[in-house]
């Protein structure tokens, strides 16, 4: 049986009421137009991570995003997310942001090509309306501009 996070998170946040999980107001299902082996793929992460030279995320309710180079040799990754679970991912961001693994799979032909960048933002945002009306459309526009066919979200 899978580990149940919600009761533990509720207990950890007590006496504050449990967080409300939001669901999108619109269905996001899109048919795959082509096989992954012909698709350009990007990673999306809510770990608030960035390249070391990019501006830090501001804790808690920062609704900005970063375009992180998809080249695994393109410098050090920093995780700004405030979550206490960050101790282990900070040892090796690849375990929540598999930049090198995706590049490997591109070289193997599992995916058609890498997006020139992946996209990072802050997870656990309380401003659901701003996420749906502003942040998500901005991310979608970036992906369209880069001709990305499919994106894999890794929540943090």
């Amino acid at each position: 049986m899978a580990f149940e996070y919600l009761p533990v998170m509720a207990r950890a946040g007590a006496p504050k009421p449990p967080r409300v999980l939001a669901t999108p107001s619109k269905t996001a299902w899109q048919r795959l137009e082509k096989p992954l082996a012909q698709s350009r793929v990007a990673l999306l992460t809510s770990a608030a991570l960035r390249s070391s030279e990019q501006a830090p995320f501001i804790p808690r309710d920062d609704t900005s995003y970063r375009l992180v180079p998809s080249d695994p040799a393109a410098g050090t990754i920093v995780i700004d997310h405030h979550s206490g679970i960050g101790r282990v991912p900070r040892q090796d961001p690849e375990i929540v942001f598999p930049r090198a693994a995706l590049a490997t799979l591109a070289n193997e032909g599992v995916i058609g090509s890498l997006s020139p960048f992946h996209i990072s933002f802050m997870g656990g945002l309380k401003s659901h309306h701003e996420v749906e009306s502003s942040l998500a459309p901005a991310i979608a526009a970036e992906l369209r501009r880069a001709d990305v066919d499919a994106a894999l979200l890794v929540p943090y």
Partner: peptide, 14 residues
């Protein structure tokens, strides 16, 4: 926090 496996295990990540 360990979605793609333990730290520094590239075969597991892939």
């Amino acid at each position: 926090g360990r979605t793609f496996g333990p730290p520094h295990d590239r075969p597991c990540n892939a």
